[in-house]
Design a protein around this nucleic acid. Sequence first.
DNA 1: CCTACCGATCGGTAGG
DNA 2: CCTACCGATCGGTAGG
Lengths: 207, 207
Amino acid sequence: MVNIDRTTRREQIRSTAITLFAERGYRGTSMKDIAAVLDIRAPSLYNHLSSKQELLQEVTIGTMRTLQCRFDEVLAATDDVVEQVRHGAECHVLHHALHPKEVQLGNREIASLEEPARTELLTRRRDYARAWQRLIERGNACGRFDARSPKLAAFSILEMGIGVATWFIPGRGMSAQEVAAHFGEIALRLVGADLPAELVPPSTTST
Amino acid sequence: MVNIDRTTRREQIRSTAITLFAERGYRGTSMKDIAAVLDIRAPSLYNHLSSKQELLQEVTIGTMRTLQCRFDEVLAATDDVVEQVRHGAECHVLHHALHPKEVQLGNREIASLEEPARTELLTRRRDYARAWQRLIERGNACGRFDARSPKLAAFSILEMGIGVATWFIPGRGMSAQEVAAHFGEIALRLVGADLPAELVPPSTTST
DNA sequence: CCTACCGATCGGTAGG
DNA sequence: CCTACCGATCGGTAGG
């Protein structure tokens, strides 16, 4: 089936582009580079896409949209603010550990995005950050948290997760799940939530 | 004095380059763009520098070196691990709040750095992260902290600071000093240090 | 500090 | 999927 071949080819291009963009940067990667990995010539790529920019937009905005959806699901799954922060942080970190290249592109190639995609990505990021901030404010309001500045606490949690995309290597040290669980606890510490007794560590472990 | 003029011109080029590199990316900025801001022609820039790459290397490595020096000074200033973490985090955050463009270049343009500068920057970052990790391990060892994973706690603190360079805007909301002080406390929470009584907030404030 | 200019590379199109 | 090719732009040099 021609249609299937075209779809898989498109996926190959997409995943090659993600890898090269992440390694060399968007502008440091030529269409020729992408084609070379797939063992074809650069102009052939245009049978599967309309521009290099399209690839970047698809990856960065698509990844951000996925993150937002997952976070909304976490919020909907429980009414307990403590569990919302814990699972929200786990979800956030897991996303960054599992899609490090896509996430890095969204962070590093903002300047390479053309409008209106650039504004859309920035708006989504701002919305996501605000959702976190409101969550922490709710926890403060009902006395479960004591975050001095909810905005700053929100930014801190988000940035910690973004960092995971930089240093986390699958198969080395902790698993993605372990890192995520760990960050769930760190997030709770950060907002000043009372830790349930079973999470208070009896002793110290290292990675 | 010709020498003074040359020095200031060089500084103008440097600061223009930092701004444009941060806004449009290193590869998205041409020497012509830099020259246009200074109202001269691109080839004239080469009277003051030998290559575009040299500008990027100077900024990214120089900024990282400064950060390392400041951190060493903080460690040397006291033997109390709690104060070392607090002031270390304040120093880290202040650096990122005061030099956001330079720091962003170091984070986003790693792929644009040619060797051996690229490796030098990455080595310095790794050394800095390891110094933080050892500091937290010392606090664990003497019973002042209870960080589950010192490595993860160190990464978290570093990444939070890097985030500051993204969202901090001077003159809006908290001052750089306030943000830094706040992060000093967050860092202590993160490593599980016992908070001195005067820092436990009586109620909640927002930014 | 300038003009004139070079070789290289780029994203993308035409046409098959 | 290919070859042939285009206009544009780039970093940098020569020579004054």
